[in-house]
């Protein structure tokens, strides 16, 4: 059994079927890149994994534990969902940092709120908060922002903001970190620094699902590539397989179109 198993996920918005029978799995430490044109359902799939959308059918299993099953509505209460979604972290296309908090506070806020629910919080308040602070600083050092701890989001560049968002997602130590087109809202000269951070995470065997339009990056960093079109997984395989020898006509066309645009 794989670390993450996504089983026949379906999702419709009104009459529009956005996801059709999505099946895939992911091993611990593996990096999957999801590619495909806009409107192919990539983002909706990530949003389903993070409980921002509720699939109409199908199930999601992490580490042998069913965390979502459309057939079992009793397991979908808000309080349950809140805990379960912590298996996943999500980095948004447009960062969504909290503007009124400093860089460090953005990273530590959620952890502090969660710590308050711990039984021993009152006794060890200081130590716990201290630990969260240290952890936050460590994460920000990892993404190269040690000198920006006390800045507010509007005072730093888009690339730096996205790196803060990555540190924020890492702060709760999710099992699987998801990226929704993490560089699409950035100027070309800023994408490099964000991709570098993600690449470093891949080297540390962080389990990741990356929705991206950066084909070279996907080929580089992913262990497996999934190509989606029109709500279905058309093809998946190693980067070599998908990029060099695509089996499906739709994949070929997508890659051809992509290459043409960038020549």
């Amino acid at each position: 059994m794989s670390f993450l198993e996504v089983k026949s996920i379906e999702k419709s918005f009104g009459n529009l079927k956005v996801l059709k029978n999505i099946d895939f799995s992911l091993e611990k430490g593996e990096v999957i890149a999801i590619i495909g044109s806009s409107g192919s359902g990539k983002t909706t799939l990530l949003r389903c994994l993070n409980f921002l959308e509720r699939p109409d059918s199908g199930s999601i299993i992490v580490n042998g534990k069913v965390i979502f099953d459309a057939a079992d509505p009793t397991a979908q209460r808000d309080s349950d969902v809140r805990r379960k979604r912590l298996h996943f972290g999500l980095v948004f296309q447009n960062f969504n940092l909290f503007p009124q908090y400093t860089v460090l506070q953005n990273v530590t806020l959620a952890a502090e709120l969660l710590a308050k629910e711990r039984a021993d919080f009152k006794q060890n308040r200081r130590a716990i908060l201290q630990e969260i602070q240290e952890h936050g600083k460590k994460l920000l050092a990892q993404v190269g922002l040690s000198d920006k701890l006390d800045c507010y989001p509007h005072e730093i560049s888009g690339g730096q903001q996205q790196r803060v968002a990555i540190a924020r997602a890492l702060a709760l130590e999710p099992d699987i970190l998801c990226f929704d087109e993490p560089t699409s809202a950035l100027d070309p000269e800023l994408t490099g620094e964000v991709l570098k951070v993600i690449r470093k995470l891949a080297e540390r065997n962080t389990t990741m699902i990356i929705v991206t339009h950066e084909m070279d990056f996907a080929r580089d960093v992913a262990d497996r590539v999934i190509f989606m079109d029109d709500g279905v997984i058309v093809e998946q395989g190693s980067p070599e397989e998908v990029f060099e020898n695509p089996r499906e006509e739709r994949t070929k066309q997508f890659l051809m179109r992509y290459n043409k645009d960038f020549e």
């Binding site: 993070n50 409980f51 921002l52 809140r82 805990r83 979604r85 912590l86 996943f88 972290g89 999500l90 948004f92 969504n96 940092l97 909290f98 806020l109 959620a110 709120l113 969660l114 924020r168 997602a169 709760l172």
Partner: peptide, 9 residues
């Protein structure tokens, strides 16, 4: 959504 994925109520 950022708050939700971070497990906030």
């Amino acid at each position: 959504e950022a708050g939700m994925v971070l497990g906030m109520t």
